[in-house]
Nucleic acid binder design. Structure first.
Lengths: 186, 186
DNA sequence: TCACGACGATACGGTTGCGTTCCGACGTGC
DNA sequence: GCACGTCGGAACGCAACCGTATCGTCGTGA
């Protein structure tokens, strides 16, 4: 029987390695070293670096996010942005996400795992918000959902991850207002 | 005197290596191999992989983009999106950009170079569009420019680079319409 | 014509990680 | 109290690069 505490130490080490050196530079030896564990323990659980990471990403994907339901489009967006921006503020997340995202451009398996996580996370929640707004009559019946999701998720990602500028007080509220206005124009 | 054709071959090889294996995995040996050149030729020009990449990124940053001026906010956005999406469609760009972006989270020098390229590229153009719209009276006087830039650039980046979904006919036009509406709400 | 310098090629010792194998120690279940 | 399987640690041969040095070749400018 594999020891669970060892497994957990390895998982934690992978996250740390992923954040500090990235997927490409990450090595099994480095993971074992950081976890205070023999290489054997790692190989006994996962066949390779790829399997290890895919496993972790899938595990996260399963979690899913809570769906906001404030009764208004703008309120829902505001809540979604609060949660998302808090998650993206964690250094671990903000380092790992773009790293894996870049890696996905080269590795179809990672791409698929990330897509799944995205679909069950951000994408799913945003989709729920938009549909609720349509049912409520806040958005038109024929609203282009794909475009709507891009309008909802794009700006915050751009600012947090690409531009990496800080979000001053009130930014999220104004973003929610502007986004809701854009959605109503669809 | 360093031979210019050799220099150019190295530059091209770097782009290809960057696209196919990424910054982290890229090696001087690999670059020289791909360029059909001795390692000596590379080291004679650049001290390291980092200097090489910084040099290339700066070179791109200098170029700058042409500023659209169609006379209307929506028209300008439309044109900007056409140009941007065409650029992002190139596999080389769509592989290299997220890769360097991820690397920037770890390396301040790369981050700075990318920020500069961003400022003189996408950011600058978008900024010009927004300001022109304000002068024209299409947008309010006190428009929050930072937020405006996120609204302009975020959605297309999200869709092209993160979600990696294709842009069907008419998408860019609808995106421009929705974005203009969002901006007017600021 | 001659000297200089960049060229590609090759080799150097050193480092790192690969994936595997063997070890003795420990702990748990029977 | 015994057997089994996991544990960390160490070593294996192999491969890739590092950055440097040293070749003989070739093209160009003085």
């Amino acid at each position: 029987m594999l020891r669970e505490d060892v497994t957990e130490a390895i998982r934690a080490a992978v996250f740390e390695e992923l954040a500090s050196v990235g997927y490409a530079r990450m090595s099994i030896e480095g993971i074992a070293r950081r976890a205070g564990v023999g290489k054997t323990a790692v190989y006994r659980r996962w066949r390779s670096k790829l399997h290890l990471v895919l496993d972790l990403v899938s595990a996260i994907a399963v979690q899913g996010l809570p769906a906001p339901d404030t009764g208004s489009l703008e309120g829902d967006l505001r809540l979604l942005y609060e949660v998302t921006s808090r998650a993206l503020r964690h250094p671990v997340a903000s380092q790992i996400i773009p790293d894996l995202q870049a890696e996905a451009a080269r590795n179809p398996e990672i791409a698929e795992a990330l897509q799944k996580a995205l679909r069950e996370g951000q994408h799913g929640v945003a989709s729920g918000i938009v549909r609720a707004a349509v049912e409520r009559g806040e958005l038109r019946e024929g609203t282009d959902e794909e475009l709507a999701l891009d309008l909802v998720s794009g700006p915050l990602y751009w600012r947090s991850v690409v531009v990496r500028a800080e979000l001053d007080k009130g930014y999220l509220a104004r973003l929610a207002t502007a986004t809701a206005a854009g959605l109503r124009a669809l």
